[in-house]
Amino acid sequence: MFGLKRGSAADLLVLLAVWAGLLLLFGQLSAGFLSPATLGSVANRIPALLLVATGMTLLMVTGGIDLSVGSLVGFCGTVVGVVMVDWGWTLPAAVACSIAVGLLLGSVSGLVSVKLRLPSFIVTLGMLEVARGLAFLAAHSRTKYIGDTIESLGTPIAGLVVSPAFLCALLAVALGQALLSYTVLGRQLVAVGANIEAARISGIAVDRPRIAAHALLGALTGVAAVFNCSRLGSADPNAGVGFELSVIAAVVVGGTSLLGGRGSVAKSFLGVLIVATLEAGLVQAGASEPLKRVVTGVVIVVAVLADTWRRRD
């Protein structure tokens, strides 16, 4: 009863209600919205978001943040492209490379930020530029078309309706929540985020969980990059620009505190659903791009505001 405390079930219900509300609302606004095609498009959109949101939640629970995940999606994706197109390796090998690169860069961010005592905000802001630059270098500034092999990850499995990517993302969410609720590392993440001094005095080696959270997020971003490639069928060094903001928005809508000490992967999952549904719904309702951004921005702030109010009562 620690990751999912009392009242947490109520939080989940509130988020579910918001999601259902959005579905109904957009169903009213545009006729074709409540269709398998829409749900399919949402399901196809979210695996990458879900994976990274899971890792981001774990990191934000410790009070850290990673702004470089968008660039990392671009760079790891480029690695997939180079490995598969230029070197002709298989998909599993490419996935392994992508995860390795993500893990490496995530760990670097973590080590630099924790050991050199720099705010993770600053360190990953630097990494945002570094990884994007590496992406362009590795791809020679050209998109690489990969094709069917990788697209199959995003295509629904026959008879199952959902794609391997989606299943994998769900698995990550489940494992992420389990990690937070049932493991020693999960406890340490929360304790470090809630009160790092108290955690240190309680005998927790506080650097380790913080670095681990960065590394884990990096690895998950590596997987997300593969799914992003599968959606594009190609490796594009531009991929993932602005992705970090969508992820952070979803995590925050899910009620995770930017200050650390509080967060739930399950709620981030609903946050992702809400953000993705909002995106799809606004397009279908005919909202123009500027209007979409205004609405999305307001919804994020109001969602977080409502959450804070509920907590205070």
Partner: peptide, 11 residues
């Protein structure tokens, strides 16, 4: 890509 998918979903 999302816009393409939404257009399809919209019929």
């Amino acid at each position: 890509v999302n816009l393409v998918e939404q257009a399809v979903a919209q019929g």
